[in-house]
Nucleic acid binder design. Structure first.
Lengths: 355, 355
DNA sequence: CTGAAAGCGCTTACAG
DNA sequence: CTGAAAGCGCTTACAG
């Protein structure tokens, strides 16, 4: 049976399903079929796939031809069962309807796909309980690692991870110590930077507007308040709503802050969706931005730069957070040296027309 | 060994890893351990998990207690290998940075998670080649089904699916025949409805603005042109850009159409991102919306309703598309009757201030 | 309602 | 560089 052109053309599986009564044969082409076709042992086929450098060139060629001829697709479940490695990473993000996390997922995907990993995506809805439940579910799939977004390591989660012995990297927030792996930036410093900017521009009565009050938002708030206090300004001009963020809520928050503090001259919104809603509300009321009201956002989503006026915002490295977190995790899994257990990617302030 | 309170409290695995040299024991708690603890056979544990009604109540109780005591987590890979069913669905969407598809994923997740399925998400980047490649990758994970977003069934894809014998449901677009399962709405009719609305409002020189020229966009265009032609209006006022959609591009397209047709009095944007950008550009230029320029969008994303002015748009059932497509697929997998192989969920026109 | 045997398709851990 | 044997942890297909 030589490597004929005819054989090469056939891309379809040619294995007839076994007809034996009671047989469990799936009709699938297996590594055994490829081995027979290539006149080597199944073990050699396995090696040719995972560590080609251990296999003689000639054998490799015959195996490659056999794979093509038979249309062989490796069975990931069998591989996982035998090797106890699934090539799957569990990824948990707070929300999928938030563009921020989507871009982080893009970074994760770009790293993992080139590294040969798949991932399962879970949405925690900003809830620790849901996060724990998702981890339990995912454990059945024996993920090789986790990428998490929880802001602080609560006990249940810690115990689950310790019991399963599966490594995890936290994203967005930085861990307190180097014992946990984490990739992100300082939420507190970002909030502080926003305050400093508004103060330097001369605004004397800035407010903080926030929704979806997860721990990250509260850290941004903390930094913002610190900045105001240091400058001798009142840090208590703020409207906080626990409900999920929407553009429309930005409009509502702007309306509320004007009731509480009619002399408010600037708002720092904890994300760009709120900032956009606040801008729309100002337009509706005929309040000039930034002359009568400055608006700053957070994240630099697509519309911030091209709104009228363009919106000043904190540019966050969310794609890189996903990419680097995935890289850190995979390096750890491969036993490669991990440079830093705590990677601060920083942030930038984009100053635009709205402040 | 009775069901003591002490035993119930222990949530941690208590199995000591086998010490035998050369052993492949993973230290994991298996169905065999649970069976020993509950004094039944492994087969009965398996049944208690998958078809409890086939197992005596008393045995079920003992098994449940043993599972809790030992901290047993089923091994999905072993289950997949033995049963040839993975409980995984492969989902392919054109883009993850588009809110439309994210909401569809929410619908998919809500149905699949309650049905006990996981899913792998792939991003095709609107490319048929990439879609084919992703399907090949996913085949290694032996998904039980696919949820696809490709607009038309190209040959390579058809062959792949036929060869693997894995059922698929197409989303967004409706299939031509009932032989393919599909869930969506008529893109052409939606474009036509937008044209009719603008015409009835009295606009005489409407333009079509589009980016990301995938087949769905072209169908919206087709319907829009049909509407204009029928009313005796010029259908050729349009700006089409193949590049991916951004808010900023909406501004650019608006600028371009004003060069081509200075008397243009309305624009139908093929999505809300473009509509938002067009609105910003009008504001920048001091063009009054809708008095001097009407703007209509597509999808009804979060900002459309609360922009200033609020934006008229086509409301699309994207969450339901995901939910219903998942439902159709799972019903098919379970051998339950599938009502319609082609499910038209329709759309609505939300008339707002911008037109 | 329950169980013993065999097998799913790979990889590990040796041995050569 | 290559291969025979055993095993990963489940479920199928019987048989009782």
């Amino acid at each position: 049976m030589s490597k004929t052109a005819a054989a090469e053309k056939t891309a379809q599986p040619v294995k007839p399903a076994k007809a034996a009564k009671g047989s469990r044969a799936t009709g699938r082409v297996t590594i055994v079929d490829v081995a027979a076709e290539a006149r080597v042992s199944p073990m050699t086929v396995s090696r040719a796939l995972k560590s080609p450098e251990l296999v003689q060139q000639e054998a490799r060629d015959r195996i490659a031809a056999a794979i093509r001829k038979l249309g062989y697709v490796p069975n990931q479940a069998a591989s996982t069962l035998a090797s106890a490695r699934s090539q799957v990473i569990g990824v948990l993000v707070p929300s999928l309807t938030n563009a921020v996390f989507i871009e982080t997922l893009s970074g994760i995907r770009d790293y993992l796909s080139q590294a040969g990993y798949q991932f399962l995506i879970g949405e925690t809805g900003y809830s620790k309980e849901k996060e724990s439940r998702l981890i339990s579910t995912y454990l059945a799939h024996a993920p090789d690692g986790f990428l998490l977004s929880s802001s602080d390591q609560h006990d249940i989660l810690r115990r689950q991870l310790a019991a399963s012995n599966i490594p995890a990297v936290r994203m967005f927030d930085l861990g307190k110590s180097n014992s946990d792996m984490s990739v992100g930036f300082s939420q507190t410093k970002a909030g502080y930077a926003a305050a400093r900017h508004l103060i330097e521009r001369g605004y004397r009565r800035p407010a903080f507007l926030a929704a979806q009050l997860d721990p990250r938002m509260m850290k941004r708030r903390e930094g913002f308040r610190k900045g105001l206090s240091e400058a001798g300004l009142d840090p208590d001009v703020e409207v906080l709503l626990p409900a999920p963020t929407t553009v429309d809520m930005g409009a509502q928050l702007l309306a509320r802050v004007l009731e509480i503090a009619p002399d408010c001259d600037a708002v720092f919104c904890c994300n760009d969706d709120l900032a956009l809603g606040a801008l729309f509300e100002c337009q509706r009321r005929g309040i000039k931005v930034p002359q009568q009201m400055a608006i700053a956002g957070f994240n630099d989503l697509s519309w911030a730069a091209c709104a009228t006026p363009s919106i000043t915002t904190i540019v966050t490295p969310r794609y890189d957070i996903g990419y680097k977190a995935a890289e850190m995790l995979i390096r750890q899994l491969k036993g490669e040296p991990v440079e830093k257990a705590r990677l601060d990617l920083g942030f930038e302030l984009a100053v635009r027309e709205s402040t």
